[in-house]
Design a protein around this nucleic acid. Structure first.
Lengths: 167, 167
DNA sequence: TATTGTTATACTCTATAACTATA
DNA sequence: TATAGTTATAGAGTATAACAATA
């Protein structure tokens, strides 16, 4: 019985790996196709919002994790600790994040998005969405609908296992 | 007869718009879900490749367009013309792009990806694909396969109208 | 004279090193 | 003594202004 289960697991793993490899092929083609538009859209958003790439990355990390220490931010943005500290200074001055004291460990500062910071991210999401819409808007409605349904399924599946968040 | 065609066109347009709006909803959720991972993956790639965000954006634009003048590059990267000129200097020094004379207009320089530049982009694509694979690898193979098929359809549809490239 | 691009200068971002405060 | 963060200093990226070359 255990052997059957194990065999099933191995088979399932192989299937998953094969499916992932197949997926990688089309993602590479998609990346190649829309990559330049995405990069340009991102640059455009940063210019409009007057943010650096590191700054928007930091905001994204904070949205995903609620709060992060300065050290954690430096790791997640691939910045040095001093650079991360400086970055937080700038974001605090613009009221996009706030630095809070941690009573449990007074060395450590806790950084959190403000409402304004959340709004900036929402605004940027909107810009991206408009970019995708523009990219796809000439297509057959049927394909758009099918894509919508597929992404919806994907999100449901992703939501179901969101707990294992690496790092 | 013309009226019928026109009516069809209007209906089709409405359908397309509605489908695009639906799509925008799920894209926003997807962006929200994977945004922080994508930004972090991008930062990671840039750090590993020792490139700035502007530099990789420039490389992407060059891949999409074969050749661009320095002015066109400055527009597509949202950099000032002097900054774009400086950026090209750096990329030339690293042999990722080459500056060619344009015999038709000797004021204008033509910038083009080198083989090494193409390889850098390919390497970055690979990093992204690995990131997506990691994100999706825990999911049901059936969903992965369905997603692969859907993206494949989308690429086919996009390829069919690739000629209208805005700007 | 207008267009395309480069050079000069000042400011921001980032890294390494030195420092402060807390554990 | 080790850890978390900030301040000091130097190098890279970028913008505005001034310049050079071509149309």
């Amino acid at each position: 019985m255990d052997e059957t289960v194990l065999a099933m697991d191995v088979k399932q793993q192989t299937e998953t790996r094969d499916a992932a490899v197949e997926l990688s092929g089309v993602i590479k083609r998609l990346q190649r196709h829309v990559g330049s538009k995405i990069m340009r859209e991102l640059q455009s958003e940063l210019t409009q919002l007057d943010l650096t790439f590191s700054q928007i990355t930091a905001l994204h990390q904070l949205r995903a994790k609620e709060v992060l220490s300065v050290t954690q931010l430096s790791e997640r943005t691939y910045l040095s600790l001093p650079a991360a500290s400086h970055l937080v200074d700038k974001l605090v001055k613009r009221d996009l994040v706030q630095r809070e004291e941690n009573p449990d460990n007074r060395r450590e500062k806790v950084v959190r998005l403000t409402k304004a910071g959340q709004n900036v991210l929402a605004q940027m999401d909107e810009g991206f969405v408009q970019g995708y819409i523009q990219t796809f808007s000439g297509l057959d409605p049927q394909i758009l609908r099918a894509t919508t349904a597929q992404i919806d399924q994907l999100l449901t599946a992703l939501g179901a296992e969101q707990e294992q968040e690496t790092l």
